[in-house]
Design a protein around this nucleic acid. Sequence first.
DNA 1: CCTATAGCCTGACGGC
DNA 2: TGCCGTCAGGCTATAG
Length: 266
Amino acid sequence: MPELPDVQGFKEYLDSTSLHQPIEDATIFDASIVEEVSPGTLRRHLEGAELESSHRHGKYLFAGLSKGGNLILHFGMTGFLKYHEDASDEPEHTRLSLRFESGSQLSYVNVRRLGQVGYTDNVDEFIKSHKLGPDALDDGVDRDAFIKAYKGRRGSIKGALMNQSIVAGIGNVYSDEILFQAGIDPRSKVNKLDEEMLGDLYGVMRRVLRTAANHGGNPDEFPEGWLVPRMQSGDDSCPGGCKGTIEKATVSGRSAHYCPECQKRY
DNA sequence: CCTATAGCCTGACGGC
DNA sequence: TGCCGTCAGGCTATAG
């Protein structure tokens, strides 16, 4: 599930529930999802510390620890956070749980183990070593930087948008939404798009991600005419008013949803 | 350098 | 009901 807007929602959830509370214990239920350090090392860094801040970069969430360093949270396809008061409310598939002095707990839950938790001293180095580009909503990603980064690539525009090393945060669902709103077929080659079209795409990308992030990635709150809520409810009629049907195609190894009427293939 | 592909995990769903 | 294949909002390593 979690792309930039969803992870922004998790950040706000963490901020409003879990900051500035001493962690009494950290329980790692699944050692295999711990990256960068050993499970024991992660635990030592967490216990006795407080989460004092949080920072999102692309689909990653980092929580600054009062003893120094940062907890890394990455959600893969099925991860999320759950704050609960009672140990009996522990969700299934909890992989890491932080129990605070108050008795409340913050749980990192992930069915498929494609996500990771970990620890790093230096977030910037972690971002560099994982080859992540700038966050898609970063001020540094302006129109010119966007055009320069994508211009002339050979692959599909959908694949390029999902490439985390160019710009971080866009995944399968939001690449579909952005391309739908930009009127571009996901199979289009990037090098067939001129600078003006890339500039327009930039504007759509920022607006879509900002709007979705403002709603914490909850499709029920998205504006009229968006594609994501339709897909989620299993309704394949085009929300663009063309009366057409949303089609599916495999693009860059992922399933793309698009409207052949409203989106032009370049 | 760039792009496409297979593999990693688990659970839900549809068809037989 | 039970089994099987397919698919899923991500990332990495590898091959071309």
